[in-house]
Design a protein around this nucleic acid. Sequence first.
DNA 1: GCGAGTCATAACGCTTTGCTTATGACCGCT
DNA 2: AGCGGTCATAAGCAAAGCGTTATGACTCGC
Lengths: 314, 314
Amino acid sequence: MTLSQLRAFVEVAVTGSVRQAAAHLLVSQPAVSAAVTALSRDLGVPLVARDGRGLELTAAGRVFAGYARQVLGLLDEARGAAAGQLHPERGRVRLAAVTTAGEHVLPPYLAAFRARCPEAEMTLEVGNRNRVWELLSYREVDLVIGGRPPAAGRFATVATRANRLVVVAPRSDGPEPTNAEAERPLPRTVTVAELAERVWLVREPGSGTRGTAEELFEDLGISPPTLTLGSNGAIRESVRAGLGVTLISRDAVARELRLGALEEWRGPGLPLERSWHVVGRADEELAPTAALFLERLVSPGVVAGTEQFHRVED
Amino acid sequence: MTLSQLRAFVEVAVTGSVRQAAAHLLVSQPAVSAAVTALSRDLGVPLVARDGRGLELTAAGRVFAGYARQVLGLLDEARGAAAGQLHPERGRVRLAAVTTAGEHVLPPYLAAFRARCPEAEMTLEVGNRNRVWELLSYREVDLVIGGRPPAAGRFATVATRANRLVVVAPRSDGPEPTNAEAERPLPRTVTVAELAERVWLVREPGSGTRGTAEELFEDLGISPPTLTLGSNGAIRESVRAGLGVTLISRDAVARELRLGALEEWRGPGLPLERSWHVVGRADEELAPTAALFLERLVSPGVVAGTEQFHRVED
DNA sequence: GCGAGTCATAACGCTTTGCTTATGACCGCT
DNA sequence: AGCGGTCATAAGCAAAGCGTTATGACTCGC
């Protein structure tokens, strides 16, 4: 058994295709095929089975893929930990964040950490809710910045920061804002009926914000027409263009609200008060460089002019 | 990086010596040396440093060794899980037990499981308390049979069985037993003073029974002369030979008590009621074959004529 | 039934691993 | 100083890993 065989098999398991796995790994298709065959022979158990044109994992294959993925993640972590042990400031921190956090919350912190530890290696993977927790539980990242972690899985929140979800609409929408002269309009208070008749722009399934929006509709007892758009940027610009309204993290529209391009709507239960959570695995120590990153994250004054993260006490 | 490099390094870390590691791995000394060098170069961090005649791990080496050990354990587990997925009865279960459990409690269950699943592979490592929990936490075994697991570490007890620790003395010791005619003498009740003046045979440091004996001395407020012997068998035979008395699991001296070769002493708080615990890791599912073993372990009637294990309900 | 798509196998070469034995470097002990 | 113990390095070799291209087997969809 070989590590590259494991890597090849994991890629096959994830993509569900030898061809795609080969493309991702930048090798030829037979190379991957041979690796999987060799691994399967070594284990004495078929890991994949042909399924028509493509293939599918066997039961043993699914089980083994989970383990293999953990093995590789753990090994990657080990590399970082070993390198970081002598010089934490030259080690590596592997982050994953949900889209909004990755695009609007994290950048100033990344910059601050970079300035303080220019030799540290940083990786940030941005994905939706499902993706980031998957990465954390398979040990492919050290820390996740996102909404509340799922109850299943051994996660431990280490820091939080307020995340206010607001309903925003285009500036010119509805009656004139109460203080049209000011650059920054005051939030407008609206009724449930007003919310119910608008078109709502929502994220793709699997997104945490989409889930929260659906909860909101249920709480309000409304089922407005919705339009699904795959990114926060697309939604923000579409709201600006008058396509509809949306529920979105205030962090993602802070600039537009300040400049008056969008306006906030208040209503029953709105805005929603949530938190950003910085989450690690419960059962193990943080890698040295990741711990260093966390220190910076929760240090007062690291990022001026924004709300700060706070360490979660046990 | 290569798996065999990891194996070589882990062996060096455990034994603390290239030479011994080579002996364990059945290869020449330079082979191990080269593997460690290659690994160290690959990681970009020295893992070992020469220390006079021998060598010692660097800080990074110690950290990496822990990870590497887990990686290999996890991989081993993955093998078993994959093989066991299709045919649990042909898979593998990796056990570790403390000495007493391994020698006196487990054998009938091993035999019963073997009879039921003759194709399953079984490994049993017998060691003292410290050793078995180490094996479990590094994923080198699936289940441990021993005393109570340490509070630190993510362990979950899955089954228990009574473990009565009794004080035993040679048959002819002290005044005549109350029913000298019967083959099996009744337990004799003694005072603390009588216990305090005897020589006590105790196990080596690291043994759970030794720890319990020390607790007993403290509870009774006595500090009798002790003699340390490295195995239960040595202790049992020494007691028989009149060397002193000892605290020992009833399971380890059941035959001698029945035959009248030893006699049990009752006293304040004696016998001590403890439990054997069958323990797995809290954060993951049991491998299929290990689960099968557990089923047999707790099935009524599997082992006739002895006290049975009982599943622990959550 | 034919082409397109996907995976497995065959044939082959290059590189690396992993092992050996021989030898050198270093330490600690007498 | 010399010797025994331990580890590192050197040189050489067999085997396996890992890659490639070419081609065959099998589905699916038209």
